[in-house]
Amino acid sequence: MGYNRTPRRSINALLEVSEKDTEKLKGYFRAIKAFSVPISEKEEESGMDADEIRKNLFERFEEHFGDCSQAEIREWDAEIMDMQKSLKKGYSDVLKGLRDASYFRDRYLLKENWAISEAKHTSLPRKIKGEDPDKIFGKIKAMVEAAESGKMGPDEVLTEGRILEKLGPSILTELLHKYFISGYPIKNKRSSWGLMLSMDMTGVPEDVLSHMPYSQFISYCDEVYAHFKKWCTGKKLKLNDRFKYYYLDRYYQCEYETPRCQELLKFYYNDREYYY
């Protein structure tokens, strides 16, 4: 007897997702989209106009941060500054010869970089552990120096740090964010899903992570932050623009961890080939 797939019409009986979310997810499985214009010019593709985008985002901000206080925001500011201080010290210690490159790899990549520490079930940590630490540090140093020079765009900066199948956008943008804070948002699995769900985009999350230019991702983040800042103003909350990308990372994480997103994740990774 041949293998019988579950009929498409039974999808909502298997997963607790709304019809709207189901239709949205099907859109994610269509052909790769070219992310090359501002969100406001992609209303037809997203299925939402500017007012709907704003309303959708404000509802999600209220869901995640409705009880947020100014004291909590100050704690967020302190968190990312502590991360920056730790990373810069480790980086500086290697440059000064106080620590070797293997210490930086083992401490600041394998233990403190979320993209690696949360991938213990994959081969990524083993691949990084097996790579020459001097090569790893050299690539990170080249990336940091490229960013400091101000002569390269964000996509070119990322290219300076890449090592095939070892140092990719998730790891590198996290390093850039923690080192510079205000210039570079984190572009990883969580932020890709969070952005797509928030903006009602079409395509698949891996396209945001792997194919959307980093410069375009930054533009999207800037637009989301503009809405977040307006929402916070209405709540009498003050934000420090220096930490805008850390605020967004917290938002994307909240969105990623919602039951609705987790159901979509389960659906996507278990049965995505059926719905292409």
Rank of each mutant, 00 (worst) to 15 (best):
G97C: 09
L164A: 12
L265R: 05
A226E: 15
Y103H: 10
L195C: 06
S192I: 04
V204Q: 14
E257A: 07
R54Y: 03
E43H: 09
L164C: 06
D106F: 04
S149C: 02
I11R: 10
K111Y: 08
R107D: 12
Y269D: 00
K151C: 06
S40F: 03
R260W: 01
M48Y: 13
L15H: 14
M83K: 13
K111F: 07
N113I: 12
Y269S: 05
F58P: 05
K266T: 15
A146P: 03
Y220L: 01
S18R: 01
K189L: 09
N188I: 00
D207W: 02
S192Y: 04
R8W: 08
E257H: 09
R60H: 10
I140A: 02
T258C: 04
K96N: 12
S192G: 12
Y252W: 12
K151Y: 01
S117Q: 06
Y28H: 13
D82P: 00
Y252M: 10
L237G: 03
S198P: 03
G153L: 02
L98E: 15
E174Y: 00
G203A: 07
S69R: 15
L124H: 06
H227K: 12
R8M: 12
K141P: 00
D200T: 02
Y225I: 06
L164N: 12
P38H: 00
A13N: 11
A34D: 11
G161T: 03
Y275D: 07
E160A: 12
A119K: 03
A147M: 08
Y256K: 10
M143Y: 05
M196Y: 09
Y268C: 07
L195K: 02
D132S: 09
R162L: 12
K187W: 01
R8A: 13
S219W: 01
K26M: 13
T22S: 03
E72R: 14
P7D: 01
S219P: 00
F35S: 01
D222A: 07
E160P: 02
C221T: 00
E257T: 07
G90L: 01
S149A: 08
Y256H: 11
R30H: 14
K238P: 00
T202M: 06
D100R: 08
M143P: 07
I116R: 05
R105D: 06
G161P: 04
L14S: 09
L95K: 14
V37F: 13
S219I: 01
G161H: 04
H121A: 14
